[in-house]
């Protein structure tokens, strides 16, 4: 079987995120990293490959983004992907969720994967929707926030938490599965894998290479127009105690609770 793993480059968690007022888009300059949720998807692919229930011929990391996104792909390869595909074109800049999903699906189509894996959400946009969009364009079933996968023959039995408890769903390949962060504990890449990542094949694709209809992507092709950013009503900042002397900290907490009759 062939597995494609969708990965994304996101601003480092420690970087303060902001909207660029001139473009209305997220300012994506500054330190970036592989979306931490995606490492669970790569690990899930690796565990299928190493598990022995199914023969995994290849794991391909796929990303859409500017030139810098290559670093996220290198990280994905260092974690176990065999090669990577980088969808990069100025025409894609400003794509909304639906347009991004369409473009990614177009790039994945050429790979004809049996399974597409991705993380449950991106660390920056707080969206959990991309998997369902990609799946619809590929004509595959999709399931999100999966915390357990058991491959059985031509399909996979998935468990996930939904509105009323845990659901178990049987899905036939090919399929798109977004995994929750409880599914596994991602491994750390070895130094050798990190050093070797840049030598693994990396294919860069333009919109033409991926047969993408440019009228459906980019800021102009997107159906959602975002703008008019405003500040939400802010709750007054709370009191912060840095714990240095724990006895003193506990005294302060008890006094705070007592004052509000919460004990």
């Amino acid at each position: 079987m062939k597995i494609c793993v969708l990965v994304k480059e996101v601003p480092d968690a420690a970087v303060t995120k902001r909207i660029d007022p001139s473009t209305g888009r997220m300012d994506r300059s500054g330190e970036k990293n592989l979306n931490p949720y995606d490492t669970h998807a790569i690990e899930a692919a690796m565990q299928l490959k190493e598990g022995g229930e199914v023969e995994v011929e290849e794991i391909v990391a796929v990303s859409m983004g500017p030139a810098s996104a290559v670093r996220a792909l290198h990280k994905a390869v260092s974690l176990g992907a065999d090669r990577s595909v980088h969808l990069s074109d100025d025409a894609l800049a400003g794509s909304d969720v639906a347009a991004t999903g369409y473009a990614l699906a177009s790039a994945i189509k050429a790979e004809s994967p049996d399974l597409v894996l991705l993380g449950q959400q991106s660390d920056d946009g707080e969206c959990y929707t991309i998997g369902a969009v990609v799946a619809e364009h590929l004509g595959m079933p999709s399931l999100t926030q999966v915390v357990k996968m058991d491959v059985e023959g031509s399909g996979v039995k998935c468990e996930r938490q939904a509105e009323y408890g845990y659901d178990t769903v049987q899905v036939t390949f090919p399929a798109v599965i977004s995994v929750g962060d409880a599914i596994n504990e991602p491994r750390y890449p070895s130094l050798k894998a990190i050093m070797g990542a840049k030598k693994k094949p990396l294919e860069t694709k333009s919109v033409g290479d991926a047969s993408i209809d440019v009228s459906m992507v980019g800021a102009d092709g997107s159906q959602v127009q975002c703008g008019e950013f405003k500040a939400p009503p802010q709750k007054a900042a709370g009191q912060i105690i840095e714990d240095e002397d724990t006895n003193e900290t506990v005294e302060k907490i008890v006094a705070w609770l007592d004052e509000r009759k919460l004990i």
Binding site: A135, L143, Y164, G165, D167, T168, V169, Q170, A175
Partner: peptide, 12 residues
Amino acid sequence: QAAQASIVSRGE
């Protein structure tokens, strides 16, 4: 694709 997914159990 709708026929490719089925519920085994719900709301456990």
